[in-house]
Simulated scan of single mutants.
Amino acid sequence: MTPILELESARLVLRQWHDDDLREFASLCADPQVMRYFPAPLTRVEAAALIGRVRGHFNEYGYGLWALERKDSGAFIGMTGLLNVNFDAPFAPAVEIGWRLARRHWGLGFASEAAWTCLRCAFAQLHLSEVVSFTSAQNLPSQKVMQAIGMTHDPQGAFEHPRVAPGHPLRPHVLYRIDRARWQNNLRG
């Protein structure tokens, strides 16, 4: 599949990663507030490795986590996109939607706007039948974004994330879902 290199929303460009994104991306991944619902912040090397994996996902599947850029300033603000779930879970195989934004860009609706743009890509361009999202049960801000973009909480889908250590408070995860029909209804409504 030819990679989908760029998407646009009213205020954002979702684009391929540039080498000079690493400085800002590493900074946001090192921010303890941004990473509070992950087991640990990332080092610069770990952030660079993540960008490498994202680029590989694009090459293999044609979609992935796009770098987010504000149209008004050209500022890099984080990432949002679609990934194949790559661990064993009852709901897999599946495509997940996820996001991570720098703290100074929180509360402005960018996460929901970018995620909505990714859902449009998932259903209108990629013709997926369903998209999932999951996060630590403690991560209420991300759950609010999931709800804002029309996803439905699936209480039966709650799971212990296999990549988080047993007993860690972030291991319990919640699952949200949206299918193409619900997304189309949201467009009409």
Rank of each mutant, 00 (worst) to 15 (best):
P90A: 15
L42H: 12
G98F: 04
W106D: 02
L101V: 15
R36G: 02
N139Q: 01
L82F: 10
F91E: 12
P41E: 03
L101C: 06
N84E: 08
A89E: 08
L50H: 05
A40F: 03
Y63L: 08
F87A: 09
M146E: 03
A40I: 02
A137F: 02
S136D: 03
W106Y: 05
I77F: 12
N59W: 11
G107L: 00
A48E: 13
W99L: 12
A75Y: 04
M35L: 06
G62Q: 06
Q138G: 03
G98Y: 10
G109F: 00
A67Y: 13
M79K: 13
Y63I: 11
L82W: 07
Y61W: 08
M146W: 09
F110Y: 15
A124M: 05
Q125C: 10
P39A: 06
C118G: 08
F58G: 10
P93W: 12
A115F: 04
K71V: 05
G109I: 04
A67D: 12
F91A: 11
R103E: 15
A67L: 13
G98R: 11
A137W: 05
G56T: 00
M146N: 02
A67Q: 13
A94W: 06
K144W: 01
C121F: 08
H127F: 12
L101H: 08
W106C: 07
L65Y: 15
V131E: 09
G98W: 07
L68G: 07
L65H: 15
A49T: 08
V34M: 08
M79H: 10
W116V: 04
L42M: 12
G78T: 09
G52K: 00
R55H: 01
R70C: 15
P41V: 05
R100F: 09
V54M: 14
G107Q: 02
L128R: 14
T43R: 05
S112N: 01
P32Q: 13
N139M: 04
C121V: 07
G62A: 11
F134Y: 15
R36T: 12
A111E: 02
E69Y: 06
G62N: 11
L119V: 04
E60W: 01
Y61L: 13
F110N: 04
T80M: 07
S133T: 14
V132K: 10
A89W: 02
F91Q: 06
P93N: 11
